[in-house]
């Protein structure tokens, strides 16, 4: 058994694909019709055969209250690894991304949290030595 797909709920799949590819830099892995929606996944260009991120429609009635409660407390829906959180923060701010938490270094981890414009807060984190 292995983990090959993880997901974030998105308000609008087309808009999400644009943000996750054009802005964040992921690439489309699978895009297949699935009922009224799409089975839509992206991967990191650094790991095209790695774990896929499913951009999952948020139309289930439980998703709205669940995500509102997470957002109210500033909790990210998921976390992505980056080489340098500070540099990534600067790149994304220049691209117009809004951060709810600027980079913060705590021990060996630097993390920051941004709004993915599709209903989620997303954390980026880098590990460093010393």
């Amino acid at each position: 058994m292995r983990i090959n797909v993880t997901s974030v709920f998105v308000d609008d799949q087309a808009k999400a694909l644009e943000f996750y590819t054009d802005v964040l830099g992921f690439v489309t892995k699978t895009d297949l019709p699935a009922g009224e929606h799409r089975w839509l996944t992206v991967v990191s260009p650094d790991a095209p055969d790695g774990v896929e991120l499913l951009l999952e429609p948020s139309d289930h009635p439980a998703v709205g209250p669940f995500r509102e409660a997470l957002r109210a407390d500033g909790l990210p829906a998921t976390s992505f690894a980056v080489d340098d959180a500070q540099a990534e923060y600067e790149r994304l701010v220049a691209a117009g991304v809004e951060f709810t938490q600027p980079p913060m270094t705590m021990g060996p981890v630097t993390s920051a949290v941004f709004d993915d414009t599709c209903g989620n807060l997303i954390q980026i984190a880098s590990m460093h030595v010393g």
């Binding site: 407390d73 500033g74 909790l75 990210p76 709810t100 938490q101 913060m104 705590m106 021990g107 981890v109 993390s111 949290v113």
Partner: peptide, 14 residues
Amino acid sequence: DQSLFELCVRLMQG
């Protein structure tokens, strides 16, 4: 102006 999440990270990791 920190969220609950950010304050938790600071307490636990910092």
